[in-house]
Structures are given as C-alpha cells and as structure tokens.
C-alpha cells in the first residue's frame, strides 16, 4: 500500500511510528498547518487518539489540500483528513480513514444545514472509493473509519449516527464507521473503534 501511494500520489508523505500513543491533529484551522501525527499528547489542542498496545509500526498519510487528483485537470476528489495502516502492508491488515471537524459548540455539530453526519461520512466514502478505484486498496477490502469532533465528541458520539447509517455504510461501502475520538490498535489484523 505504501508503494502504491508513493507511485500514484507522489506529493504525499508517509510517516512511520511505533509509538504506543499516537495523536492525530488537524492544524489547518488552528494555525494553518496540516494534518499531523504526534507521539506525545499535544498541549491545548484536542486530537484523535490511537492507543497502540503492542505497539506495532504504523504508516500515516496526512492529506494536504487537494490531495486526491482526478483524471480531469484541476479537479480533485473529495477527501477526509488522513489514512493510517500497519506498515507491514499485508492483505489482512486493517486500514483506518479519519475525518475530523473542529467546532466548539453542539449547535454547529448538530445543525441540520451543516448535515455533518452525512457530510463527514461522504468525505470518508469518497476517499475510500478513490483508494479502491486507484487500486491502492483492494476493491472488496473492508476498512475502518472514524468521524471525530475532537473538541466535542465525548459529549455525544453515541448519538451521532442514529438512523442505521452505520450498518448501511458497512453494507454499501464496506466501511465500518464510528463517531468517536479514539481507537485501540490491537495488532496488524485488529483495530477497535472504541470509546476510551
């Protein structure tokens, strides 16, 4: 998978880490930076936390703006924030896509006009489809995804998808999606989207 990304998306930079604690922060709306993988918990910035219990070596691709070019010049695919996967790159390894939104109030998060549950899920679905179309990941590979409001998620994550969307997305797109702020990496084969 690393080779495929490097070959097809040469602008992408893949970071590696075997830290037992991994923190993913989107600095875009904080200081204009990009999506970063950190090994120590950032101060004053909320993050998505991955607990790497063994730990295993993982690969991280944080997407910059317009990171997924299409065949049409100047047109880019919808995208989420990043993808994380074991550096071993075996067919049985898990793959995790992450979409975050930094907002400080529940009103914004649940505003029907924003339609964040669908919007965020669609960002994930589009990214996964892009990776499948480009054969970066196999067509039938089931992947994991997190939608996260790092500043709010503890308050309402269990209510975010309420209408059977999780099962529909799993069935239609082979993506196991959860609104959460964390995951537990158990091995190359196993990752649990949990509520730690």
């Amino acid at each position: 998978m690393i080779d495929k990304i490097t070959e097809l998306l040469p602008d992408h930079t893949i970071s590696m880490s075997a830290s037992p604690d991994l923190y993913i922060v989107d600095f875009k709306n904080i200081n204009g930076g990009g999506v970063e993988l950190l090994e120590t918990e950032p101060v004053d910035v909320k993050s998505v936390y991955l607990k790497n219990i063994q730990p295993i070596k993982i690969a991280f691709d944080g997407f910059k703006d317009n990171a997924l070019p299409t065949d049409v010049a100047g047109v880019h695919n919808k995208q989420c924030e990043c993808v994380v996967f074991p550096a071993s790159c075996k067919a049985t390894d898990w793959i995790l896509f992450i979409e975050t939104k930094y907002t400080n109030d529940l009103r914004t998060a649940f505003d029907e006009n924003n339609d964040y549950p669908n919007y965020m899920a669609n960002q994930i679905i589009a990214t996964v489809e892009y990776f499948r179309t480009k054969n970066i990941i196999p067509q039938k590979k089931r992947v994991h995804a997190i939608v996260s409001f790092p500043t709010l998620i503890d308050e309402f994550s269990s209510y975010f998808f309420q209408g059977g969307e999780v099962e529909e997305i799993l069935q239609n797109h082979r993506i196991l999606i959860r609104a959460t702020n964390s995951a537990l990496i158990k091995s190359e084969k196993r990752i649990t989207l949990n509520s730690i």
Binding site: S158, Y159, T192, N194, S195
Partner: peptide, 14 residues
C-alpha cells in the same frame, strides 16, 4: 449518558 451508551456499543462495533 454517552459513556453508558458507548460501553454497550463498544462490543457491537467489535
């Protein structure tokens, strides 16, 4: 409430 719900949902997602 979220904690209670998620404690149950963890197993469902697993």
């Amino acid at each position: 409430f979220n904690k209670i719900m998620n404690d149950v949902m963890d197993e469902y997602y697993e």
